[in-house]
Simulated scan of single mutants.
Amino acid sequence: MNKSIMLASGLTGLLIIWMLSGSNDAPVEEEVSQSSEGEKLMSVVVKSSDAQLVAKKITVQGQVEPNRVLSLKTEVDGKIIALPLALGSRVKKGDVLAKVSLKTRIAQREQAVANVAYQTQELAATKKLFDRKLESGSRLSLQQANLAAAKASLQQIDYDIKNSTISAPFDGVFDRRYVELGDYLDKGQQVVSLVDDLQLKITAMVPQQQVDGLVLGQDVTASLINGEAITGALSFISATADENTRSYRIEVLVDNNDHRRLVGMTASLDIPVKEVEGHLVSASSISLDNQGRLQVKAVNEDNEVVAYPVTIVRTDSDKVWLSGLPAHVSLITLGQDFVIAGQTVQVSQG
C-alpha cells in the first residue's frame, strides 16, 4: 500500500514539472528572436591609404673581395738575394719587392755585345765581297743569320737582367711572400702576392628570375657583417648563368680610399630593380587566406569587408610595402582578425 502511494506521488510530481516546462516554451522563443533582431554589427578601425611609387628591391648575400690580387712570379731562374720590404707593407708602383741574383749575366752581356759588333763587321765585309761577285749569296745569308742570332742573344740577356728585379706593378699591399732569402727559384715560381685595396668589389649571385631588372651603373647598398653600410656601383653582370645554381654573378665596385680592412667580410646587398605602386602598412595587418596566400582586409563604400591578395615589395623597419591593392583603399587596422570577406561592419576612422 505504501509503495502504491509513493508511486502515485512520483508520477504526479513529474506531471507538474512537465506542465510547467511546457508553459515556458513560447516566451523563450520570443527572447531568442528579440536577441537576434537586436544583434549589433562588428566594429573595425580603418585607415585610408594612397598608393605611392616605391623601389622594389632584391636582397642577395655576397662577400667583399679586393679589386685586384696579383701573384708575381720570377721570369728568370736564380737565387733570391734581396727581400727589402716587410710583409704587409703598403707599396707604391715601382717599389722593389724582391731581387734575383744576376750570377754571370753581366759578363754574358759583355760577350753578347762584342759578338753583335763582330757579326756586324763580318756581315759588312761579306756584303762587299758579294757586291763584287767574290762571295756567294748563301754565304751572305748565313752571315745575316749570324748577326740576327747575336742580337737575339743580347736581347735575352737584357731581358733576364731587367726581370731579375721584381717590382710592384701598381699601388697596393705586400700581402703574401712565398720565398725566403737565399732560396733558389726556377723560372715561373711564385715569389710574392700584391693586393690592390684602393678599390674593392663585392661579389654575389643573383637568381635568374631577378637578373633582368639589373642595370649596369646603378647604385647598390651593402650591409657588412660589422654593421657598416657601404654604397657602390654595379660594374658587372655575368652573361651566362652558373650551371649548378642557375644564378648570375654580379660585381659592385666600392671605393676604399681609407684602406679599411674589409676584404673577406660577408655582405648583404640591397639592389633596387624597378619602381612599383605600393602601400605602406603595418606587418600586423597582413594575414593568410585559406590557401596560405598573403592578404590584407579593407572595407568598400558599402562598409563591406574585402580581402585583397598582396605581394611584399620590400620591408622598412616594422612596416611593409605591399603591391596588389587599389590606388586608394581603406585598410582595416584593428579588428581584421574577427571579420570575413563580404561581412558588413561598423567603421570608424583610426
Rank of each mutant, 00 (worst) to 15 (best):
S247H: 00
Q343W: 05
K56A: 13
I237K: 02
I16V: 05
V345N: 06
R177K: 09
Y308M: 12
D196P: 10
V206I: 14
A241T: 02
V96Q: 01
N256E: 12
K93T: 03
A117T: 03
Y178D: 03
I166L: 10
E135A: 15
L216G: 12
E251A: 04
I237L: 09
A117D: 03
D158W: 08
V299K: 13
A229C: 01
A298T: 11
T333Y: 10
V211N: 02
M6T: 02
G188Y: 06
A82F: 02
T240Y: 06
L181N: 02
V296Y: 02
V192Q: 07
S167Y: 05
V45M: 11
L7F: 15
E122I: 15
A233M: 07
M1E: 12
L181S: 05
R246S: 05
Q121H: 04
S138M: 03
N2K: 00
T311P: 15
L70M: 03
L83H: 09
N2S: 00
Q63T: 15
L269R: 03
D316S: 10
E301H: 07
T231A: 10
Y178Q: 05
L325K: 11
Y118D: 06
L194N: 05
F338W: 14
V113N: 14
Q199N: 08
M205E: 14
L140Y: 08
F170R: 06
S4L: 08
S136A: 11
D158A: 13
R109V: 04
E37M: 11
L334E: 12
D219G: 01
I202W: 13
G335N: 05
T126D: 09
S223T: 03
I58D: 02
V76L: 14
L216D: 09
L198Q: 10
Q336C: 15
N257T: 11
N146K: 14
Q111N: 11
E251Y: 06
R314P: 09
V195H: 12
Y308A: 11
K187E: 08
V263G: 05
K57D: 02
V347T: 01
G264A: 03
K99R: 13
D289L: 04
V206C: 04
Q108W: 07
N300G: 06
E75D: 04
H328T: 06
T315C: 07
L123E: 04
V263Q: 00
E122L: 15
Q144K: 09
G10Q: 04
I17K: 02
L262R: 14
L294C: 14
S33I: 10
E122M: 15
G172N: 00
R139Q: 13
D255V: 00
M19I: 04
G213N: 13
